[in-house]
């Protein structure tokens, strides 16, 4: 399948939202959206490991920090569209639903519904959670001030 410029970035952004979404919320939205399509599992859902890399000094050569669990799935719809999902953790149902959403999203006519019923609500909640966390962190910011010691009086 050929992708228009920008399509990849959109698809990647969707996958980022799905990867971070809570399994419960995704299942609930998915059940309510009524978009389920017949599909076969091409791979998985299966859980494995990725080795997490960092960089020496933050920006130098890469090194391996440790491993993390990841679950992935690949589905094929009756239309032939193939969808993939990868996410940290071990939730297989989340992985399967995410892969179906990725496959459905390749049909442009379904995008508005997928976006409105699933991706936007998920993204909004993730953003709100980040914003709440940031504002709590911001409250712990140190405001330095200088004490007037009074010796000039």
């Amino acid at each position: 399948m050929h992708w228009k410029a920008g399509e990849n970035a959109l698809r990647q952004a969707n996958m980022a939202v799905l990867a971070r979404a809570s399994a419960e919320q995704l299942s609930a939205l998915w059940a309510k959206a009524g978009l389920d399509a017949e599909h076969e599992m091409v791979r998985g859902p299966e859980t494995g490991l990725v080795t997490v890399r960092g960089r020496i000094g933050g920006g130098g050569s890469p090194f391996n920090v440790g491993e993390a669990t990841v679950t992935r799935a690949t589905v094929r719809l009756a239309t032939g569209a193939v969808g993939h999902a990868y996410a940290l953790g071990r939730d297989k149902e989340k992985s399967r639903i995410s892969a179906v959403i990725d496959a459905l999203w390749q049909d442009e006519t379904l995008r508005p519904k997928l976006t409105e019923r699933i991706l936007t609500p998920l993204a909004r909640d993730l953003e709100n959670a980040d914003a709440a966390k940031c504002s709590e962190t911001a409250a712990t910011r140190v405001d330095f001030f200088t004490m007037v010691r009074g010796e000039d009086e």
Binding site: G48, V50, T51, V52, R53, G54, G58, N64
Partner: peptide, 16 residues
């Protein structure tokens, strides 16, 4: 567990 690969190096400058 099987191993799926090595991640791209995490960027700590972009940390939340």
């Amino acid at each position: 567990l099987p191993r799926f690969g090595y991640t791209c190096a995490a960027d700590t400058a972009e940390m939340l």
